[in-house]
Design a protein around this nucleic acid. Structure first.
Lengths: 143, 143
DNA sequence: AATCTTATTGAAAACTTTTTCAATTGCTAT
DNA sequence: ATAGCAATTGAAAAAGTTTTCAATAAGATT
């Protein structure tokens, strides 16, 4: 991902009237180093490993802030925890096996047309999306 | 929705080796009466209004079971609570305003082609999907 | 640089969801 | 019908997330 991501997120937050506090900067640096996604707890532990002490509450608040601004995305839940992904990261979606929970990625989603159509009918500026498919993986189907 | 839904869900669970217990039957009857969706707490309160006492734990377990079998779907979270919808209910999706949280519905999603393609490449039987669009509604954009 | 205003923080409490475990109950086979 | 096995239940505990509120600190103003 690279430091571009952090700088961009910081300036987005700043432009929109949010303060660039130490906790937020630290969280962003952790996110930058997690191209495979992260949970709140993982961010918390990573900041402590860096010797910086941030309350778990602030981690959650920062993650929610980033979600509201479309900078990260909640991709799914795994054993009760939410997993997030930076939106700049390679755009992809998940196909989740409803039986065993296995997750397979896929890329093309071709939602551009739909996005434009919905933007027109709802008069909403569509900035992002989340798509998950559910089904049964090959192994689970064999039973 | 009608009583067909309950019967169908019950037989699906039974076929797949699950027991048709009293708590499960009660939860299904509540779901049947909630075409606009429901949270775990709402199901809990509805069962008590019917004079039936089921542990909240079992409500959650039943809902998770139904999700795993593709019979209901978690549509989104609102003030920290998950909201579910029976899959038989009118198929639609949500466009969520990231600023104020307002939710607008839309119908056509045209994911059939994508579904087939992903099914082929991942060798997964795709049974359902969840699609959300994120953006800014007209009112929030004015600021 | 000092002050002011107000968003943000951390700790604790509240709330939502999941896990644990002994007791119960649905189903199967007798 | 009855007995037996295993899935399911409820209560309590644990885990994850949000809210509350007083204290702090970022950024604007002077």
């Amino acid at each position: 991902m690279g430091p571009t991501l952090v700088r961009q997120m910081l300036s987005t937050l700043s432009e929109r009237g949010h303060r660039l506090t130490r906790p937020r900067q630290t969280v962003l640096r952790v996110i930058e180093a997690s191209p495979e996604g992260f949970t709140a707890r993982q961010v918390y532990q990573a900041t402590r490993r860096r010797g910086i002490r941030i309350g778990l509450t602030s981690i959650y608040r920062t993650l929610n802030l980033l979600v509201r601004h479309g900078l990260i995305q909640e991709v799914h839940r795994e054993n009760g925890e939410h997993r997030y992904l930076a939106c700049e990261a390679n755009h992809h979606h998940h196909a989740v096996c409803m039986a065993c929970g296995r997750i397979l990625d896929f890329e093309a989603c071709g939602l551009e047309d739909l996005t434009r159509r919905v933007a027109r009918t709802t008069r909403m500026a569509i900035l992002g999306h989340r798509l998950e498919l559910f089904g049964q993986c090959q192994d689970c189907r064999k039973r």
